[in-house]
């Protein structure tokens, strides 16, 4: 048993390559989301270089779509950073859950692997670990695959999107909204989450109408987070 545990954090070329291949089917979808981002971003007023740089350096779809929503000639830096933090805060939990297997690695490797941590490769790596198989190859190799195809998709979207004259008439102004909504609805659904979302939506709308511009995202996120703490999930909840 101890021996098996000791090998779970194994990481070599073969495992990384296997991980890369394991995430290829999902990468196809990531490419399509990338295309959607590449089509939506110029509508918000970003130039091509900025968009490619964002996908390359940030590599976090939902937060990138969210920033498009805030994109004006002037952006409040703090609001933007809090929004990005709140959307990507789930990475904190991913890192925390992966810690037992990352701990034996030297810090450079440990943090190097986390550079490409994302929803799909994290989920798959966790699955490998719970099956008693080494999962860091999936995390790193799969992450590299997701990153490559996210950047590729963005570039494809820019190439296609430039040809579109009136995006709203094709419904393309809704790419972002529908993407974010699909993420919400695809997540955990139960009465508790519905109430949390209700609090978040209500707080967001109040802030939208009565507080300064763009504060609604932060207000809604914090209100929802607090609701989650106040209405804590009990272990015996059915």
């Amino acid at each position: 048993m101890a021996r098996k545990e000791a090998t779970l954090h194994r990481l070599d070329r073969t495992l990384v390559w296997d991980g890369f291949k394991a995430l290829l089917p999902i990468s196809l979808f990531v490419t399509i989301f990338g295309i959607a981002f590449g089509v939506a971003a110029p509508q918000a007023g970003l130039d091509d270089g900025t968009i490619m740089l964002m996908s390359t350096l940030v590599f976090a779809g939902a937060s990138q779509f969210a920033v498009l929503e805030l994109w004006e000639p002037q952006i409040p830096l703090f609001t933007m950073m809090v929004t990005v933090f709140a959307i990507n805060a789930r990475h904190l939990l991913m890192g925390a859950t992966l810690y037992p297997w990352l701990e034996p690695l030297p810090p450079a490797k440990r943090y190097g692997i986390m550079l490409v941590a994302s929803d799909a490769n994290w989920a798959m790596a966790t699955q490998e670990f719970t099956r008693g198989r080494p999962g860091l190859g999936v995390l790193l190799g799969g992450g590299i695959a997701l990153w490559c195809f996210w950047v590729l998709g963005t570039w494809l979207g820019l190439s296609v999107g430039g040809a579109i004259r009136d995006p709203a008439s094709l419904g393309l102004d809704m790419v972002m909204g529908c993407f974010l909504l699909a993420m919400v609805v695809g997540g955990e659904k139960n009465l508790r989450m519905l109430l949390i979302w209700g609090v978040a939506a209500g707080a967001s709308l109040l802030a939208f109408y009565y507080l300064p511009d763009n504060s609604h995202v932060v207000v809604g996120a914090i209100a929802g987070g607090l609701a989650g703490v106040i209405w804590g999930k009990r272990d015996h909840e059915h």
Binding site: L93, G177, V184, G220
Partner: peptide
């Protein structure tokens, strides 16, 4: 963190 990561999307969408 868990409640907030969904809520921020809802707050954007509302």
């Amino acid at each position: 963190i868990h409640a907030m990561s969904g809520s921020v999307l809802v707050a954007l969408l509302a």
